[in-house]
Amino acid sequence: MTAGATEIEKAILNYLVTELLYDKDIKGLKTSDSLLESGTLKSIDILQIVTFCEETFGVEIPDPDVLPENFETVAAIAQLVERLRS
């Protein structure tokens, strides 16, 4: 995990590593790594990330915000969550 990661980033990283990116080298996943480059995440995985964030951080992520630019990296997802929280 990345040093200096926010609590939200850490929770997302932990979720990805234990639930979705099980085929990744876990220790190497950084908050700035592209989650989409390899093409392994399918629509169903994205929906699971959305559900996880909604349940864990108490936000509602509207469909029009579920876009590649908001899910490109762990940092981007965390920024989206923070924006929706405020």
Binding site: L41, P64, V66, F71
Partner: peptide, 10 residues
């Protein structure tokens, strides 16, 4: 594009 495919809105 591979990056768009999983995102229904995109």
């Amino acid at each position: 594009p591979g990056k768009v495919a999983p995102f229904a809105a995109a």
